[in-house]
Nucleic acid binder design. Structure first.
Lengths: 408, 408
DNA sequence: TTAGTTTGTTCACCACGCGTACAAAGTCCG
DNA sequence: CGGACTTTGTACGCGTGGTGAACAAACTAA
């Protein structure tokens, strides 16, 4: 005998769970049956059926075989289909950039690394990006109409809401340039722009630390910057320059002059050029970050010592950050962090010594896990987070429905 | 001739703006007409009328006279009625606490300052709080049924989601005590608990800096702590200990031992006891913060110098915080900040010198404006923010409607 | 006073979602 | 192997909520 479903319809519709909300449940990728979705949402089975149909029509949800029967007719299962659409993810550095097409789960379908000088100015750089993007679409034989959005990471401060760089030091000509507007001339989809460190932080958090809502990502290379995720959200500050740790003063370096004109800046002590200079003074040549990595791998004592000291300097600043933000993880990325675990060791040494036990008891300090491409994944995530939101899905489905009506 | 209202009903209901959402618009206090609300929400005038009626029935919205006619029947106007319900706001310090009843806008209707030793333990303290609360209700002659929630600020780290203090150093017996559960035995309403600094930060931001979404509040007294508002939201960190700046190392104090066992802590240099000790070494007695304020007002050069130096030490730490968080305001509160503008001057001196121009160009550093009671207002705001949310209002109205049906 | 305008209220219509009924497709047991 | 049972999937009547139009009320302007 079938159990009568649900009671009073006086409170019907209060939940207000629409197709978009249903989709949010499926976003984790787990295949689910209609019945499971019904109990999760509290909606009637008939309603779920209609919603699932709409989502299947759009392609965003796929049937993925049947589940085991529990004594009756075996239910079919449905899951989010990340392959339904694609995202264009762009990570631009000072001298080169990575342009990639990913699916909706952030998996890279195609990628190209190109030599791009960011100082050629926005038009030149972005034209090259869009041209490369068209080629990528050709190479994987995918329709450009499947593109739902573009995410771009830039090596400087960006006002994320408007997508305009704000006084970027190494990006002449980019100040206040309307990146989304320009890119949308080539691809008419949402264009989201952010600082490259923020994007890497997002990529690391979403892929490797999903249970940690308070993560501090550090990129240590030529410059030193931080991406802050608090309460699960990227924190960008008032002008989008949050995380700019390069020019924080460190006690040790009272006599070191930084390129910013101040003395004792973290970057002037622990930035990649500073480490190279330290080694040069000991007659060790390591002009590039690759050199540094090789030296560290071969166990050069001077290199290891220099990296460890850089880690201590960085750790001094991070100890303050830990007290202020109380993160549960610090992730160290960037070329300097990749050269063995020496930087990491220096950071750990100082942070665990300096901070209160309460703040460090549950604090992990780890190296970045997405060796390369954290930026790409983060750029893709930034887009999907916005484009796959309940509201966005909802309006997309409504649009499709009205189109279907007008062309029967 | 009347203009036909609205078009296709195919997209009807997509907005999903219910009574709760309507109420959010009215929350700013501005009186509005039904017609204005209709264009703002996009809902039909008839729908607005029903929603407004429901809100008026609940008392949360009041008619506030008529607006000027624009050639036809003059419209009546409606506005949020903060007097409809009350909030119990409690701000507990180490040696005394303030207990107040506020309206829904945070205006204080009645308040009492009581001598409470926080180290008497949670039961004793909270019993006194609830007893005092009952008396306050009597004194203003208001029904306790009008109470919608209780906000409590405690002088130590609190896990806000559960309302349990986490290893608070100066609150023996409070660790992991379920404050909401205990208080709810006396008043069966939502009980929200947070760190006192967080609450003060919230109060300052909501009352005096509503346009600044990135605010850093500093309380400088015996201890030194920060409340972080980023992106309009309080940031509490992984364990609720974010903002614990007291034990960050400052370069100057390499030989000062702090009570935490470490050396060079900010608190050991710039905390109120440290300032008192500096003055005592110069044969100036200022054991309490009131003494300090009097001395500063009378222009004692030693006092001013000590405060200014404390400001510089604090500024050194805040310079790092500015680089990390990129706030648009830093607000200095607490007894030390109240003793003239000397602490403020020291902070400004160092922060503006140390930080990059980009971060400080639009940065204000100001003294707290709610001389007293920022904690109370913040505690009240914390409650209203939750209790007046769209969802909360929605379910309250639904509840009222069903009660009205059952008792005709 | 009268025409015109805008607000406030009532009411029929319509779409959406719910719950029920029933067919379809399995499992389990004799 | 077939019938009893269980669970999924689909079709359909019904109630609710929101809309838009019609109309009454209240005021301005000529």
């Amino acid at each position: 005998m079938a159990i009568p479903e649900q009671g009073s319809s006086a409170i019907a519709g209060i939940g207000g769970a629409r197709s978009g909300d249903l989709f949010q449940i499926l976003l984790d990728g787990t295949p689910r049956t209609r019945a499971e979705l019904a109990v999760m949402t509290g909606l009637a089975r008939s309603t779920i059926a209609a919603r699932v149909d709409a989502l299947m029509d759009s392609g965003l949800v796929n049937a993925v075989g049947e589940a085991a029967s529990s004594g009756g007719r075996p239910p079919s299962r449905f899951a989010f289909n990340p392959a339904a659409r694609v995202v264009l993810a762009v990570d631009l550095g000072a001298r080169h950039g990575v342009i990639a097409i990913t699916d909706l789960a952030g998996s890279i379908l195609a990628r190209v690394r190109a030599d791009i000088s960011i100082d050629s100015g926005p038009q030149v750089v972005l034209d090259l990006v869009t041209k490369t993007a068209h080629q990528l679409f050709d190479s994987i034989g995918r329709n450009e109409l499947d593109l739902v959005g573009i995410g771009i990471g830039l090596p400087g401060p960006v006002e994320h809401t408007s997508g305009r760089p704000a006084n970027p030091p190494i990006m002449p000509g980019w100040h206040d340039f309307d990146v989304p507007e320009y890119v949308r001339r080539s691809f008419d989809v949402p264009v989201l722009v952010d600082n490259d460190v923020n994007i890497m932080a997002l990529g690391e958090q979403r892929t490797h630390w999903p249970t940690h809502d308070n993560l501090l990502f550090i990129k240590a290379a030529t410059g030193i910057g931080a991406g802050i995720i608090s309460n699960g959200q990227l924190q960008r500050g008032a002008l989008g320059t949050a995380g700019d740790l390069g020019h924080v003063r460190v006690a040790r370096g009272t006599d070191v002059i930084c390129r910013c004109g101040n003395i004792g800046c973290l970057e002037a002590l622990a930035g990649a050029p500073a480490i190279a200079a330290t080694l040069a003074a000991q007659n060790i040549s390591a002009p590039t970050s690759e050199d540094l990595i090789v030296l560290a791998e071969h166990g050069s004592p001077e290199t290891i010592a220099a990296l460890r000291q850089a880690g201590r300097d960085l750790g001094e600043v991070l100890a303050t950050c830990v007290s202020l933000l109380n993160p549960s993880v610090i992730v160290l990325g960037g070329s300097t962090a990749t050269a063995g675990d020496h930087l990491l060791a220096g950071v750990r040494e100082v942070v665990y010594n300096r901070s209160l036990p309460l703040a460090t008891a549950h604090l992990s300090i780890a190296g970045a896990r997405s060796a390369d491409g954290a930026g790409i994944v983060g750029a893709s995530m930034m887009v999907t987070q916005e484009v796959l939101s309940a509201e966005a899905i909802e309006s997309m489905l409504v649009l499709r429905a009205s189109l279907a009506l007008s062309t029967p």
